Simulated assay, not measured.
Amino acid sequence: MKYTVETEIDLPLGKVIELFDNPDNLKYWMDGLVNFESISGIPGQPGAKSRLIFRMGNRNIEMTETITAKRLPEEFTGTYEANGVYNIVKNRFISIPGNKTRYITENYFEFKGFMKIIAFIMPGSFKRQSLKYLQDFKRFAEDDIRNLNVIQLNGTH
């Protein structure tokens, strides 16, 4: 299965990349993420592996992320492996007029076993989840900047 989703973020490209490229921010926009830990390699760099644990419903889903390319803003690509699912996500960021950024993800999935049935029955659920992460990142990024500006205007840190 292949699909692309995108959103427009009301922030300049540099600020979006700064927020995206900080793994400490994942918890603010990846709904269900309960743990993110480095396994090997230099965190955030090609070849690095991390373990992600998501709470979905009443169960935990563990996956391994391997970063395969990092040339921000043009590309940040990773593979994500979990039981019965192999996923490649290519993230791209493009500066657009109005000091805004277009955030695009290209998604590719392979399924095995029971997950083939789930993907066949509910193919739209994967695309909806990918779009939700983009929209949640947009909300986090735009709200983070608004909150920071309010703090700076009030003279507090």
Rank of each mutant, 00 (worst) to 15 (best):
M1P: 07
E6L: 11
T7G: 05
I9Q: 00
I9S: 04
L11A: 05
L13C: 08
L13N: 02
I17E: 06
E18V: 00
L19Y: 00
P23T: 10
N25V: 00
Y28N: 14
E37W: 07
S38K: 01
G41A: 04
Q45V: 14
A48Q: 03
A48V: 05
S50A: 12
R51D: 09
L52M: 06
R59K: 14
N60S: 10
I61Q: 07
T64L: 08
E65A: 09
E65S: 14
T66V: 08
I67H: 02
A69R: 09
T77Y: 05
T79N: 11
E81F: 09
A82N: 07
A82I: 12
G84S: 10
I88K: 05
I88R: 03
V89N: 09
K90S: 15
K90G: 02
F93P: 00
F93R: 00
I94S: 15
I94Q: 13
P97L: 05
P97Y: 06
K100I: 06
R102I: 01
Y103E: 01
Y103A: 08
T105V: 15
N107C: 02
N107T: 01
Y108A: 14
F109N: 00
K112F: 03
G113Q: 08
K116Q: 15
R128L: 07
Q129F: 07
K132G: 11
K132T: 13
Q135Y: 07
F137M: 08
R139C: 15
F140S: 05
F140K: 03
I145R: 11
I145W: 07
G155I: 04
T156S: 12
T156D: 13
H157V: 10
